[in-house]
Design a protein around this nucleic acid. Structure first.
Lengths: 198, 198
DNA sequence: GCTGGCTGACCGACTGTTCGGTTAAGAATG
DNA sequence: CATTCTTAACCGAACAGTCGGTCAGCCAGC
């Protein structure tokens, strides 16, 4: 897909392919730091042609963050997230969240960088807070069961734990030398067993 | 400090007080999502008055991120970061990084959200990579000493560990119920000893 | 021929910054 | 204490460029 000027012809974008490139650019330059002109250059079509596919820049953002959030919420609805001892459910949610993060990397990346300047962004943040709450509840339950150390507040635990998971967006690359499974293992091991050997 | 319109009189900003408010707003709305007009309204002075204090919007950013980076690099130069067994040095760097993060929260927050669109941003990212490299080297040394578990790649360890530390910017609040020391404890404990009780 | 994907010209609003001018506030003076 | 001076902090107007978006028309591809 070469960037060209003053061209005629149809690259043949659909919403999906256009969205993918938009999200990539939003992640590179920031949503607010990316103009539609810039996106059009990347796409090799004019700015106005973008509006054939989507009604607004915000709609691109909304589509992307919803995709990320849908993936994360789906994790919390899996049977192994719902049944069994809380610590096991928590481990499952951790592993599966890493998997979703990896699988929907561009979308989750964009989601995690949302600020809250517009309605779309604030809606995404609200939905994110819901997810965070589900996870925190699970951590609290595992702590109440006596399966998590009690010297760290469960709310802090939850935040640090998911902070670590979310930080993966900053460096994980699909061909970067670690498989999604190995990554999920590393996260889970670090979190539950710690780094030190005694 | 009230936002007002069409006012005369001198709120009496200096660079420091102006920078503090700018950084706060940059963190709320994103650097690119914050206009100088908006900043001027928050300050209660005109947009052009800002330029008495700083030559450009980018300079505000540069001042802020340098402050964050200076703090972090200072940690790596402390005696306890330089002398002794690698695992102990690592723990010290971890605890002190948390402390710097908390102490310089607005500046570090802004730093961690830099994208790379401008020279200032790219310089900050380059410096950040230097810091990351120092930390990764330390992790590798501790692993080579046999003090860190060997089933997680040291580079991955380093990233997850500092990913977790850096995630604190997203939720830590100075009056939020956890002291900097308790936070450093929590991070260190989670990282080195893990969450599970056996 | 038809449809929908695209273009170029355009819009109003906003962006970061400049520049000549004003003035608030503090210091100095009698 | 009142007045004058000084200067840094501020103002308003303006600038060139950019922003997201609109719309009538063209045309690629089936």
């Amino acid at each position: 897909m070469t960037e060209q000027t003053t061209r005629r012809g149809r690259p043949g974008y659909d919403l999906e392919s256009l969205l993918a490139i938009a999200v990539q650019l939003f992640n590179e330059r920031g949503y607010d730091g990316t103009s539609m002109e810039e996106l059009s250059r990347k796409l090799g079509i004019t700015k106005s042609a973008i509006y054939h596919h989507v009604p607004s820049k915000q709609e691109l953002l909304r589509l992307a963050v919803d995709r990320a959030l849908d993936g994360l919420f789906a994790v919390t609805e899996e049977p192994r997230s719902l049944e069994g001892r809380a610590i096991d459910r928590l481990e499952h949610v951790v592993r599966r969240s890493v998997a979703v993060l990896v699988e929907r990397l561009p979308f989750v990346t964009l989601l995690l960088r949302v600020r809250g300047n517009t309605k779309v962004e604030r809606a995404a943040l609200a939905r994110r807070r819901e997810f965070d709450q589900l996870v925190t509840d699970l951590v609290k339950q595992a702590a109440a069961d006596g399966d998590l150390r009690s010297d760290i507040d469960p709310a802090v635990t939850s935040r640090l734990l998911f902070g670590m998971i979310n930080s993966v967006i900053e460096w994980y690359r699909p061909r970067g030398g670690i498989t999604p499974d190995a990554l999920a293992d590393a996260v889970s091991t670090l979190a539950f067993a710690g780094l030190r050997v005694d």
